[in-house]
């Protein structure tokens, strides 16, 4: 490669996905990457938190204190958010939304702890968006039946159907690209600052971390969950849960 590639090789900017080790499966070389490792760490943290919360709830007290307060606050806020958007459908989806919320939020802020955020890998966000897409289509078929789905596709006139199909297919792509690009841009900017400014980058990048990791991460988590809920509630219509 040439020597003009300052950003990719010369200055050793490090925010790309790296392979940790490779293995063979059905004749293909597959890699365990930093994304897998960081996602596993995030999952372990969530699982540890859940086990601790479960232990605590076994002997919960009438007047909550300490840890129980935190857990109840989190669950209440999440329930309020889900039932505010989904109404009577909320009961069926708050598990999914809650899981999504904690996984995405912890992934987004994991950049603070020196990990590479798993959500800065398109594979992760696209998988999340595909789950949402499957839920949307499944619930649409379940509540509006085939006739309702076809009627929705031919919304103003039947000639509109291809455009509606493209619009439907664009949902998971835009959903995943929004999260991916936001987190990737934050990761890239922080990597550029730390590597290109070198020794000047002391303490003051903390302000940038607050914006790129915490603020942007929280907003994108909220937006992902909110859009997921809106789409699913829209697909369910006003059917009984």
């Amino acid at each position: 490669m040439g020597y003009g590639t300052l950003l990719s090789q010369g200055a050793d900017v490090d925010f790309m996905i790296h392979g940790v080790f490779s293995y063979q499966l059905f004749g293909q070389t597959l890699w365990i990457t930093t994304t897998h490792v960081c996602a596993l760490i995030v999952m372990l943290i969530i699982i540890g938190f859940c086990i601790a919360a479960n232990r605590m709830l076994k002997h919960a007290t009438e007047v909550p204190g300490g840890f129980q307060n935190v857990v109840e606050l989190l669950v209440e806020k999440l329930d309020g958010m889900v039932s505010g958007v989904m109404g009577k459908q909320a009961v069926r989806f708050r598990n999914y939304i809650g899981t999504l919320f904690f996984f995405i939020f912890l992934s987004n802020i994991s950049g603070l702890f020196g990990l590479r955020p798993p959500t800065a890998d398109y594979g992760v966000t696209f998988a999340l968006a595909l789950m949402t897409f499957t839920l949307i289509r499944f619930n649409e078929l379940k509540y509006q039946k085939l006739s309702g789905v076809l009627k929705g596709l031919c919304d103003p006139w039947p000639i509109w159907a291809p455009i509606n199909i493209i619009g439907n297919l664009a949902v998971p792509i835009s959903l995943s690209l929004r999260l991916f690009a936001n987190i990737l841009s934050g990761t890239a900017i922080m990597a550029l600052i730390y590597t290109l400014l070198g020794k000047i980058a002391l303490i003051w990048p903390a302000a940038l971390h607050v914006y790129f990791d915490i603020f942007s991460g929280a907003i994108q988590t909220y937006v992902f969950c909110m859009l997921t809920m809106t789409y699913i509630a829209d697909a369910c219509g006003d059917g009984e849960p």
Binding site: S174, L177, R178, A181, N182, S185, I219, Q220, Y222, V223, M226, L227
Partner: peptide, 11 residues
């Protein structure tokens, strides 16, 4: 929410 959706084209 609206701002985050509007941001997509820039992204």
């Amino acid at each position: 929410l609206g701002q985050a959706v509007a941001e997509t084209t820039g992204l």
